[in-house]
């Protein structure tokens, strides 16, 4: 390989640069930070257990939207046998009415920008 010291040096600089945010957060002590989510105001339990909802709520929502839009199937039966209307704005947000403190907080932390709300309306929050 030609110029191997130079190539290796370049690689090292590159690696340091792209991992910089990690070192920065460790040095600043903010790496441990996890956002505190606001608990829902009402409702005893969610449509599925917390672990599943935390990791896979987007899959559930995607399944729901497909079943509602494409199959016209609007009723979801939870593992505990309770029935729900498959609706983000009407079922999910009915309990999690504090979207900023719940959905947004975690999405912002992870820098995820779901476009659900571009079209779906947060009940009572629309300006116009």
């Amino acid at each position: 390989m030609y110029d191997s010291p130079k190539v290796l040096l370049g690689l090292v600089i590159f690696l340091v640069l792209i991992t910089f945010p990690i070192w920065y957060n460790i040095a600043g002590g903010t790496a441990e930070y996890v956002p505190e989510l606001e608990k829902p105001v009402k409702g005893e339990n969610c449509v599925a257990d917390t672990e599943y909802m935390r990791s896979s709520h987007m899959d559930l929502l995607n399944t729901w939207r497909n079943e509602v839009v494409r199959d016209g199937d609007r009723v979801y039966t939870a593992p505990d046998g309770k029935k729900y209307n498959k609706s983000l704005s009407q079922t999910c947000l009915d309990c999690h009415s504090n979207k900023e403190g719940f959905c947004d907080k975690c999405h912002d932390y992870l820098k995820i920008e779901p476009y659900c709300w571009d079209c779906h309306i947060i009940p009572g929050k629309e300006m116009k």
Partner: peptide
């Protein structure tokens, strides 16, 4: 351009 919003129905992009 939506004049009056119906909260029970989504908008489009």
């Amino acid at each position: 351009h939506i004049e009056k919003i119906n909260e029970n129905f989504p908008r489009r992009m």
